[in-house]
């Protein structure tokens, strides 16, 4: 339906199709692309009946090829993959800490938290103002946002953790972003929470054991038992 750039390297892909397998924010889809053997996994930014939005960043040949997809193209997707975020422990004012393309699944979460009457506050980090994504969308939900950029061109000068510190008291933590950021968020967090991880995947549905990580409760497949892990089970 739509494949448009939001920044220099991040695109928004809106697709029409069956979304009934998606049950929680933070799940992902696995997209088959012409000319590539393995599918490409992307977290779901938002979905409703018959419509799906993912944001992707150009990182390699696969995502580069995706920028050429035009409306009307038919794509083969596996949807509803992974566990997603559990909203039950959110409390009244959960903190959503995201960096770069880790932010899209937090938007889908924020939308549903707001709909459930919670007051999420989003601590969002970018390299620079030109990289900022989804700010208007978060604000349109009525969610509070605290922005940090590395160069100070938007919001606070600093990291996601600086935005977290400025967010005040929160009841729970949801976070997604690069592993280095997740680790800093882990160290800075003062509440329990859920962390969404990224890993190179083979199948995306738990068959190949390609994306296994160690946890305090034994090995887990990021694609099937994750991508969301609880703070207390993470082994860095």
């Amino acid at each position: 339906m739509e494949n448009a750039p939001l920044t220099e390297s991040v695109f928004r892909l809106r697709l029409a199709g069956d979304t009934s397998a998606i049950t929680a924010p933070g799940q992902f889809v696995n997209i088959l692309l012409d000319g590539f053997f393995l599918r490409r996994p992307f977290s779901v930014c938002d979905w409703e009946a018959g419509e799906l939005t993912v944001l992707y960043k150009i990182l390699g040949r696969g995502t580069k090829a995706m920028t050429a997809l035009s409306p009307g193209t038919k794509l083969d997707l596996l949807t509803g993959l992974g566990n997603g975020f559990d909203m039950a422990p959110a409390g009244d004012r959960p903190l959503l800490a995201g960096g770069g393309v880790g932010i899209p699944p937090l938007y889908g979460l924020a939308k549903r938290l707001c709909a459930a009457g919670r007051r999420p506050v989003a601590a969002l980090g970018f390299n620079t103002a030109a990289d900022a994504i989804l700010l208007e969308e978060f604000r349109a939900l009525g969610a509070e946002t605290v922005i940090a950029t590395l160069d100070g061109s938007l919001g606070l000068r600093g990291l996601v953790t600086d935005a977290m510190a400025a967010a005040g008291e929160t009841t729970y933590l949801y976070t997604c972003g690069p592993e280095g950021m997740l680790r800093a968020v882990y160290d800075a967090s003062r509440t329990p929470g859920q962390f969404s991880f990224e890993e190179r995947m083979g199948c995306g549905f738990g068959a190949c054991m390609g994306c296994t990580c160690e946890t305090k409760y034994g090995p887990k497949r990021i694609c099937r038992d994750g991508p969301v892990l609880r703070k207390e089970e993470i082994v860095w």
Partner: peptide, 23 residues
């Protein structure tokens, strides 16, 4: 067996490579 550290998966023109290591 936990198997090998990740990344365990790579791609090539004709398919994929895996180094799961008998998890």
């Amino acid at each position: 067996r936990f198997g090998n550290p990740t990344p365990r998966i790579a791609e090539y023109g004709g398919g994929l490579l895996n180094a799961v290591g008998l998890q």
